[in-house]
Amino acid sequence: MVALCADLTGSLKMNDFADKYPDRFFQMGISEANMMGFAAGLTIGDKIPFTGTFANFSTGRVYDQIRQSIAYSGKNVKICASHAGLTLGEDGATHQILEDIGMMKMLPGMVVINPCDFNQTKAATLAIAKHKGPVYLRFGRPKVANFTPEDQEFEIGKAVMINPGTDVTIVATGHLVWKAIEAGEELEKKGISAEIINIHTIKPIDEDAILESIAKTGCVVTAEEHQVFGGLGESVAGVLARKNPVPQEFVGVNDQFGQSGKPDELLDKYGCGSKDIVGAVDRVLKRKK
């Protein structure tokens, strides 16, 4: 196992690894393109590289390097991308990437994972180390509720049932899992039983979990901190279109760039708050039947 970072060691919390294993930590400077190619090269001789930088610089900035040197070359590189989405906050739209899931899931063979809290991120990190092949691991910046049990097993491609329900399925990923839990509490007060599913692996997606749930509920709301184009919602829609079409509403950013602000302010402003999930459930229930 080796780790690389492009001048964001503190932000990525990679200091402990760097201090403990200086020979296996590579400070790459502000040169992400070189970092991705270098990581691909490190695998030759059987090392498992973990790259660390912000999600924006882990994807859009280096897409061709990932495509050719890592994905097409079949290299066992783990691309660990922090500060994804709106909740990066005050730094604004230059850094708030909302297109990364789409870009990465389009690459043949690339596994795409977006965990929802600290415990799930930790479990995912251990799981991807054992997986052979390229992985994109996306996580965020702010402190968020840590609700995943510490001992929960992380299986790549396997959804996690958060709350069983009967009226509507809410499929959420990343930070919006917590928002979905909040929305579920609101819905319960209104007498609506929401089944909440945490999809941490967007590719390969857990088709069985989705199909099993919608067979029961007959409608679905997807929720993600990402553009609705190309994200989790479109992956779920693809499953439904092929296997069992039911009404679906999308919670996500709708073809817009973000801006500076506090994380929760931004989620609300761009339609990714818990009240937006409640609203989407109301809409989808009207379309049902």
Binding site: A33, F38, G41, L42, T43, Q65, R67, Q68, S69, Y72
Partner: peptide, 21 residues
Amino acid sequence: RIASGSLGQGLSAALGAASTK
């Protein structure tokens, strides 16, 4: 040992492989 064609990427991969050596 690696795909090439889109230019400018080989030196990075070679440096990575040299570091693994």
